[in-house]
Design a protein around this nucleic acid. Structure first.
Length: 704
DNA sequence: GAGTTTGAAACT
DNA sequence: CAGTTTCAAACTC
C-alpha cells in the first residue's frame, strides 16, 4: 500500500504522504482509532498484508488506469454526502464507529489538504458537516472487500446515502470493458481505499480528480467477466453505481475545498455549462449517461433540486455532462441542495434510498465457481413500477431500467418484463413460501413484506458489492450489471460504527440509541453490502444478505414482521446515500440518512421514533428553506410501499428483536466471509450451511 | 433535433 | 389517500 506513494507518478510527495496518512488513519479506524501512532503504522502494514500483496499490483494497475483515464472524460461529479461525515462532527457523534473513524480520518486528510489550500478548519468542518455527499469511506466500505472485512472488520460503512437510484444506476459501467485482473483485484482487495489512495495521489487538480473519478469508474466498471475477480460489478441502479458515485464523491470530498477553489476556475465553465447551454451537452439524449458512468440530467424547470433530476436523486451533484438549466445541484449551492434533500426526505425518508433492493435470499445467489451468479438476481425495485403501456419492456419502467424483474410491489399492467414478470415473481414467492413452510403465509403477506422490506430490509437493498462477482445475472440484461452482493463482515466495530456513523447530523442523537440497537441488529443481522448502487447496499451489507437459498419471499414471510423492521431500520439509517455499511449499520443508513439509526434502536426507540422521533428528527433537520413547503411529519409517513412513498418505520419496533430471519441470514453470510468473527446470532449461516442456517433462522423468526 | 409518450414525482 | 399536474427521460419520427 505504501507503495502507492512511490507509484503515484503524478503524485507529489506531499500527496503521497497524505495518502499514506490517509491510509493510516483508516487503518486506525480499524485498529481503533488512535491517530498517529507508530503502532498504527504497524497495524496498517499488517493490514496491507492482508491485501495479499494484491495491493501493489492493483496500485500499479490503478495507476496505469488512472493515467489512461486522464484521456477519458471524467465525470467529475461529486456526490452529495448525505450524512456524513464531518470530521469534527463525526468525532463527536460517532467517534467510535469505524465508519466514523474512516470518515474522520478522511476528514483529517481533507482538512490538511484544505489547510494547505488556505481553508480553515472550521470551514471545512462546517462544510463537511452539511455535506451529504457520500464519502469515500462509504465507498470503501462498500467496496471493501472481504479482505478487509475478514481481517479487520472494517466494515466501515458510512451511510452512504446514495441509493441506487436508477439514475445512477444507469450508467453504470460499461460492461464491455475488460478489466484487467489487476483492476479487479484492486477493487476487490484494495477496496476503495486503494483506489482512493491512488486517485488521491494522482489527483492534484480538478482535472486530475476527474481522471481519478474516471479511474474509479473504470475500476468499478471493470468488466466482470464473471470471474470471481469481477467483483466490482456495477449494477445499474444498484449499489455499484452508487459506488462509483461514491468514489467520485470521495475524491470530491477529499478535495472539496480544492474543488471549490478550482471551481471558480473550472467551475465557471461548469456553471456556464449547466446554465447556459442546455442542449449543448445533451450529447445523446438517449443515453444520458456518459459512457462511463453517470447519467446526465437535462432538467429545465426543477433546477435539479427534485427527484426528477437523476443526479439529484442519485445524491450527486450535476456535472459538466449535464445539460440542465438553472442548476442548483452544484457544490456552490450545497446548502440549498442539502436543505432540499432534507425536505424531500422529510416527506419521504426513503426518497433517496436505493431503488433496487434484493431480497435476502435468492437461491442462486451463491456464486458459481466461475464467479457468476447462478441465478438471476432477485433484485427488485423497491417500490415497484406502475407501468401501464410500456409493459415493462422499456426504460420507462424503472424495473426494466434497473434490469430487475417486476415484483409484487409493482402495479404494472400487462407486465412483460424480460427480467422477470410480476406474475412470475408472485408465483415464485408462493412457491417459496410454501416450500419454506414457515413463512408461507400468502403471497399477500409476502407482498407486504416485500414492500416493507424494500424499505427496511437491508437484504433487499442490494448493493452491489464489488467483492462478489457480478456477473450478469442470468439475465444478461443488456446493461445488466447485476448486483453482486457481498457481505461484509460485520465486525463488532462495524456495528458500532454503523450505529454511530452518522449520516446526518441530525441523527446524532438518535444515533446513540441506534448504536446500541445497531449493535444488536448487527449482531443479529448481518450486513451485506450492497453493492449496488452500492451504496445502497451498503446496507446491504448487511446483506450480506447472503443469499439465502430461500426466496426472498420466504424470508419475508418468515420474518416478515421482523424483516420489515429490519428493513425499515436499515433504511432509515442508511439514508439514501448511505452507502453501504458494511455491516448492519450500513443497512440502516442506507435508507435515509435521516434517521434510521433511531430506528435501529428500534425496539426501544422505534416506536417513539415512529410517531415522534423520526418525524421530529426530520423536522428538525429540515432546512428552514424547505420548511416552507415541507411538512415534516408527513414526511415520515411515507406512502405505502406500493405507492411510491414508503413508510419507514412502522415496523421498526420489532427490530429490536432483531433477529429477523432475513437479517440473520445475511449475517450469516457475513460471518462466512469473516471467519474470525463468529456469528453472534444463531442464524448465521455460512455459505455452505446456508440452508441449515436458513432453516434455523426461519425457525427463530417463526418463534419470534 | 423536434415532438411525442411514458411514468415517476410532486402537488392538490 | 386518490386524483391531477408537472416534469424529465425515453422514445419516435
Amino acid at each position: 500500500m505504501f507503495d502507492l506513494s512511490s507509484q503515484g507518478k503524478e503524485c507529489k510527495n506531499l500527496d503521497a504522504q497524505k495518502v499514506v496518512e490517509d491510509h493510516e488513519d483508516r487503518c486506525d479506524g480499524f485498529l481503533q482509532l488512535l491517530p498517529g501512532s507508530l503502532q498504527r503504522v504497524q497495524e496498517y502494514e499488517d493490514f496491507a498484508e492482508n491485501f495479499e500483496g494484491v495491493a501493489e499490483v492493483t496500485v500499479d494497475s490503478m495507476t496505469n488506469d488512472l493515467e489512461a483515464s486522464e484521456h477519458q472524460r471524467g465525470m467529475s461529479r461529486r456526490c452529495l454526502q448525505f450524512g456524513d461525515a464531518q470530521p469534527e462532527a463525526t468525532a463527536n457523534c460517532s467517534s467510535s464507529s469505524l465508519a466514523n473513524d474512516m470518515i474522520t480520518s478522511r476528514s483529517v486528510a481533507t482538512t490538511s489538504e484544505t489547510e494547505g489550500l488556505g481553508l480553515s478548519h472550521v470551514d471545512l468542518s462546517v462544510i463537511s458537516r452539511k455535506r451529504q455527499l457520500v464519502n469515500l469511506s462509504q465507498l470503501a466500505i462498500n467496496m471493501i472487500p472481504q479482505h478487509y472485512g475478514e481481517k479487520s472488520s472494517l466494515t466501515v460503512s458510512k451511510p452512504s446515502g446514495i441509493g441506487l437510484h436508477l439514475n445512477s444506476i444507469v450508467n453504470a459501467i460499461p460492461m464491455g470493458r475488460g478489466g484487467t485482473a489487476s483492476m479487479k483485484l484492486a477493487v476487490d482487495s484494495m477496496g476503495i481505499q486503494g483506489i482512493k489512495s491512488a486517485s488521491v495521489m494522482s489527483c492534484q487538480s480538478m482535472e486530475n480528480m476527474q481522471s481519478c473519478s474516471d479511474a474509479f469508474e473504470k475500476v468499478l466498471a471493470a468488466p466482470q467477466d464473471g470471474t470471481l475477480e469481477a467483483k466490482a460489478c456495477v449494477i445499474p441502479g444498484s449499489a455499484a453505481s452508487e459506488s462509483l458515485c461514491t468514489m467520485e464523491s470521495i475524491d470530491c470530498q477529499t478535495t472539496l475545498h480544492r474543488k471549490r477553489e478550482l471551481s471558480s476556475e473550472h467551475g465557471d465553465s461548469n456553471e456556464m455549462f449547466n446554465q447556459q447551454s442546455p442542449k449543448k451537452k445533451r450529447k445523446k439524449s438517449s443515453n444520458s449517461t456518459d459512457g462511463e458512468g453517470c447519467k446526465r440530467c437535462n432538467c429545465k424547470k426543477t433546477k435539479c433540486l427534485k427527484l426528477y433530476c437523476d443526479c439529484f436523486a442519485a445524491g450527486i451533484y450535476c456535472a459538466d455532462p449535464c445539460s440542465c438549466q438553472g442548476c442548483f445541484n452544484r457544490p456552490e449551492y450545497e446548502d440549498t441542495v442539502l436543505e432540499t434533500r432534507q425536505q424531500i426526505e422529510s416527506r419521504n425518508p426513503l426518497a433517496f434510498a436505493p431503488k433496487i433492493v434484493q431480497p435476502v435470499t435468492e437461491f442462486p445467489v451463491t456464486s458459481r465457481e466461475d464467479g457468476n451468479w447462478k441465478t438471476p438476481s432477485s433484485a427488485r425495485h423497491k417500490r415497484g413500477c406502475n407501468c401501464k403501456r410500456s409493459m415493462c419492456l422499456k426504460k420507462y419502467c424503472e424495473c426494466y431500467q434497473a434490469n430487475v424483474g417486476c415484483s409484487i410491489g409493482c402495479r404494472c399492467e400487462g407486465c412483460k418484463n424480460v427480467f422477470g414478470k410480476k406474475e412470475d415473481y408472485c408465483v415464485t414467492e408462493e412457491i417459496v413460501n410454501r416450500g419454506g413452510g414457515e413463512i408461507s403465509e400468502s403471497t399477500v403477506a409476502a407482498k407486504k413484506d416485500f414492500l416493507n422490506s424494500d424499505l427496511c430490509d437491508p437484504h433487499y437493498l442490494t448493493p452491489l458489492t464489488p467483492s462478489f462477482q457480478c456477473s450478469d445475472h442470468g439475465k444478461n440484461a443488456p446493461k445488466s450489471r447485476l448486483l453482486s452482493r457481498r457481505c461484509l463482515p460485520s465486525p463488532e466495530s462495524d456495528l458500532t460504527v454503523l450505529a454511530k456513523s452518522p449520516r446526518s447530523p441530525r441523527t446524532s442523537d438518535s444515533n446513540d440509541m441506534l448504536l446500541e440497537t445497531s449493535k444488536e441488529n448487527l449482531d443479529v443481522g448481518s450486513y451485506c453490502e450492497g453493492i449496488n448502487y452500492n451504496n445502497a447496499d451498503v446496507l446491504g451489507d448487511g446483506c450480506h444478505h447472503t443469499p439465502l437459498p430461500n426466496h426472498p419471499s420466504i424470508i419475508l414471510g418468515s420474518t416478515s414482521s421482523k424483516a420489515r423492521e429490519l428493513t425499515s431500520l436499515s433504511r432509515f439509517p442508511l439514508g439514501p446515500r448511505s452507502g453501504c455499511l458494511s455491516s448492519g449499520g450500513s443497512l440502516r443508513w442506507r435508507s435515509s440518512p435521516i434517521t434510521p439509526m433511531s430506528s435501529l434502536d428500534g425496539t426501544k426507540n422505534l416506536q417513539g421514533l415512529d410517531s415522534d422521533g423520526l418525524s421530529d428528527i426530520l423536522e428538525d433537520d429540515t432546512p428552514e428553506i424547505l420548511k416552507d413547503t415541507s411538512t415534516p411529519n408527513k414526511s415520515v409517513k411515507t406512502s405505502s410501499p406500493n405507492g411510491k412513498r414508503v413508510s419507514p418505520p412502522h415496523n421498526l419496533l420489532q427490530l429490536g428483536s432483531s433477529s429477523s430471519g432475513p437479517l440473520r441470514s445475511g449475517r450469516k453470510f457475513i460471518l462466512k466471509a469473516v471467519p474470525s468473527f463468529p456469528p453472534l446470532t444463531p442464524c448465521i449461516d455460512l455459505k455452505g450451511s446456508s440452508n441449515q442456517n436458513r432453516s434455523s433462522c426461519q425457525e427463530n423468526s417463526s418463534n419470534d
